[in-house]
Amino acid sequence: MEELSDLQLIDEVRNGKRRAFTELMRRYQQRVYWVARRIVGTHEDADDIAQETFVKAYIALGDFRGESSFFTWLYRIAVNLSLNAIRKRQLVNYLRENEIINRIFPSSDDPSREVEFKETQSRLQEAIAQLPEKQRAVFVMRYYDEMSYEEISEVMKTSVGGLKANYFHALRKVREYMTNEIPSGTSGHQRK
């Protein structure tokens, strides 16, 4: 059976064929999940963002004009949701650091909640987590997905020059973090 293009599948979805949307999900769910996972850092959040991305895409499919590729459009939704998730988490962390949450919700003292929030991360993931949100998103798209600056520009709605600067800064910060953070026993090289 001939494989339908994204636009053909979108037309079918618009004509009420839900299976076509499942096919679109099958095509892109892994990329959507991983971009979210690398930006937000945790599986739990990435799982939720991946689902929410497709729900939003399904609802807004009528507005999709085909000016960019479906994947770029989908990616934009996923990146925006991921950046929002980071902001929310930063707010939660701020409230937690200032013990505001503990005052409002005393039950959140429960240490088990803290444990479920934490997740084992690689050094690189830790380094990425230190980046400002925009640099983080650009780094993920460029470093992992090897997207062109033009594609990232469509997703982020930012100039290519600005993206290059963001990526360059991100790379330097990641290198610096990893150089300083690699434990001496992990590799033969001890770095400062």
């Binding site: 991983w34 690689s122 050094r123 690189l124 993931q125 470093y143 992992y144 290059k164 990526y167 360059f168 790379l171 330097r172 990641v174 290198r175 990893m178 150089t179 690699i182 992990t186 590799s187 090289h189």
Partner: peptide, 21 residues
């Protein structure tokens, strides 16, 4: 410059011995 930095990060990632994905 960019390629050099990317290569440096990939090397560090490899040296860290952890699966980034």
């Amino acid at each position: 410059d960019e390629r050099a930095l990317v290569q440096a990060v990939r090397t560090l990632e490899h040296e860290a011995g952890q699966e980034s994905t």
